[in-house]
């Protein structure tokens, strides 16, 4: 019971600290803006640990964070191999192929206003569909290896990136295009010097959405067939064996991979679209 009340007390104290920090004179400081969510995250972990121990929750239902951490350290080799298989080979390769294909398609589509008007509503609709359901078909077509995972990822990221890029390419204002006309600029000059830079904030929206979808696609595809490693494979087999701590270890890895992937793209976005009002702040 000490665990339970202790952890609750810790959480309350952490919350109080956050309230104080959030209303303190230094609240606009960068360090404080980072510290507050970190303190909140730690307090949740402590609460989780305390509740599980205090109420003696079965590890089959919910293992405490300390047990998950121990499992991560113990099985790091397995986790790493799974990570490489799913996140790097499946998700990232599919992501790169899918985004490149979508980008090139968007450039082609953009040349014909007729095509653009036809494709935009359809692309928007398809982007909202549960494309992840294609997973078994891709596994059927491309086999159990990472190629089928990459194929699912390609299908999932293609439309969001396509739609955002096409939309972004029409972002440059009429006036700026007129300006290009007075310079007698050619199509490619206008594209490279005006429309692509203006489209970047939109393109990055698509790219960011894609990062999450990529991992989802790669993991789900493994539920339908994979070699004997990979994050999705591990999760589904360990759930079957009720080794929930290992499942959580994989989830932690997946969360880390997802956040890193998203963070990386966000960083590149900051660097490329430094000039956009949303980035200047």
């Amino acid at each position: 019971m000490n665990w339970l009340f202790g952890s609750i007390a810790f959480w309350v104290a952490a919350w109080a600290l956050n309230v104080w920090l959030a209303n303190s004179p230094w609240r606009e400081r960068r360090a404080v803006r980072i510290a507050i969510p970190v303190i909140f995250g730690i307090s949740i972990l402590v609460l989780w640990e305390g509740v599980v121990r205090g109420l003696q929750v079965s590890p089959v239902v919910l293992p405490p964070p300390s047990a998950i951490w121990a499992r991560i350290l113990q099985s790091f080799d397995i986790l790493w191999r799974d990570f490489v298989q799913t996140a790097i080979k499946g998700a990232v390769s599919g992501y790169v192929i899918g985004c490149t294909a979508a980008f090139l398609t968007a450039i082609l589509v953009d040349r014909k206003p007729f095509l653009r008007r036809g494709l935009l509503p359809i692309g928007n609709f398809v982007a909202a569909l549960p494309i992840v359901g294609l997973a078994p078909i891709m596994v059927n077509w491309f086999g159990f290896g990472w190629e089928s995972k990459a194929a699912v990822v390609v299908a999932m990221v293609f439309f969001p990136v396509l739609v955002n890029t096409v939309q972004g390419l029409s972002e440059a204002s009429e006036m700026q295009r007129d300006l290009m006309r007075t310079y007698a600029a050619g199509y490619w000059q206008e594209l490279v010097k005006l429309r692509l830079p203006a489209a970047m904030p939109f393109i990055f929206n698509g790219l960011k959405v894609g990062t999450t979808l990529a991992l989802i696609g790669a993991i789900v595809a493994e539920y339908f067939g994979s070699p004997i490693y990979g994050m999705g494979f591990r999760i589904s087999t360990e759930v079957g064996r009720l080794a929930i701590d290992m499942v959580w270890a994989e989830i932690a890895m997946a969360a880390l991979a997802g956040s890193l992937f998203y963070g990386l793209v966000t960083l590149i976005e900051k660097w490329v679209t430094f000039w956009h009002p949303s980035q200047r702040g």
């Binding site: 991992l215 589904s236 989830i251 997946a254 969360a255 997802g258 956040s259």
Partner: peptide, 9 residues
Amino acid sequence: TIPIVALAP
């Protein structure tokens, strides 16, 4: 950014 499908099973 966490792939929810990891949690689903």
